[in-house]
Simulated assay, not measured.
Amino acid sequence: MDCLIKSLTPNKAAFGRHETFALRYGWLTKGFQAFQHNNEIFSSDEATVQLGVGKNMVNAIRYWLRATQMLEVSQDGLHATEIGNALFSEQGWDPYLEDEATLWLIHWMLASNAELATAWFWFFNCFHKSEFTVDEAANSLVDFVNQELTGKHSERTVKNEINLILRMYSQTKATAKVDLEDILDVPLASLQLISAGTSPQHYLTRLKRRNHLPLAVFGYAVNEIFNHRKISTLPIAELMYGEKQGVAIGSIFRLTESELLAKLERLIERYPRVYQINETAGINQLFRDDENVESLSFLRHHYENREWVNA
């Protein structure tokens, strides 16, 4: 399976394509299975009837399927990815998001997709303030866009991305602008990666142990990093913090340094023929001995065996 990480490219960025709709429970399954039955569903006049939503929500569902990399566009048009089929087909591993591993995986897919989920990529890889206000995050994202990206991007649209990220990941209260249905129907809030602070505009995103992050998803992410970088050796510090504006597992999952290392040790215990840690020139490095191991195999062990849930 091809690596699904999408690096930051100055001329490839996306903001506001979700029509301001946060990802909801059921959308990925409903949209994916509808696409399997009719690969032109999102451009069909029947889409609103079959999906049971308005036109703008149809566009949002298509966007979220692409942003989470369950569907992708190629020269032949829109098609399902291997991981999309594995998870959300009618006989998939977890089409109804009953396993928390799937939520962690969806989060990883968003945060490692700089092309279509640029704000999510930035927030979880490049924004390192553990306490912040909405305005601080929004202004930082605008600065990042102005300094690192090309093309024209509406400042208002860019800033609004922060509001949607907070709505998707934190347990916020209903307001005149955000109704109760939107709050109760956001699956990624259960990951507790962002929490409300002491005031309505104040938020926290702390590094923690993340005991509920399954080793399978962590292993999948580690393997994707190796595939993306096309290397066999990786400094552990780069897994924690990433290259400059690169994908950083520790940051995406909001792990402490000690917990990242602990999860790597557990990964090595389970896959001693694939990974090992050695010190080279005073630098702790993770080695991958088997470059042919498929990222999907880590997930397959979890979903088909259900023997090792948490790391």
Rank of each mutant, 00 (worst) to 15 (best):
C126R: 02
C126M: 08
C126L: 11
F127A: 06
F127L: 12
F127C: 05
H128S: 14
H128Q: 15
K129N: 09
S130F: 05
S130G: 01
S130A: 05
S130D: 03
F132N: 00
T133R: 04
T133P: 02
T133Y: 04
T133K: 05
V134S: 01
D135E: 09
E136R: 11
E136D: 04
A138S: 08
A138L: 04
A138P: 04
N139K: 07
N139V: 01
S140W: 10
S140V: 02
L141E: 00
L141H: 01
V142I: 13
D143Y: 13
F144C: 06
V145I: 12
V145N: 08
N146P: 02
N146C: 07
N146A: 09
Q147P: 01
Q147F: 10
Q147Y: 12
E148Y: 14
L149K: 09
T150S: 10
T150C: 04
T150W: 09
T150R: 06
T150Q: 08
T150P: 00
G151H: 07
G151I: 11
K152D: 09
K152W: 13
H153G: 03
S154A: 07
S154T: 05
E155W: 11
E155R: 15
R156M: 10
T157H: 11
V158Y: 07
K159Y: 08
N160L: 09
N160S: 09
E161R: 09
E161W: 06
E161A: 11
I162L: 11
I162R: 03
N163K: 06
N163E: 07
N163I: 08
L164H: 01
L164M: 04
L164F: 04
L164P: 00
L164W: 02
I165D: 02
L166C: 00
L166P: 00
R167G: 00
R167V: 11
M168E: 14
M168K: 01
M168S: 05
M168Q: 12
Y169R: 03
S170R: 03
S170T: 15
S170K: 04
S170E: 09
Q171E: 15
K173S: 11
A174M: 15
A174C: 13
T175L: 07
T175K: 09
A176G: 07
A176V: 07
A176H: 15
A176W: 15
K177E: 02
K177H: 09
K177W: 10
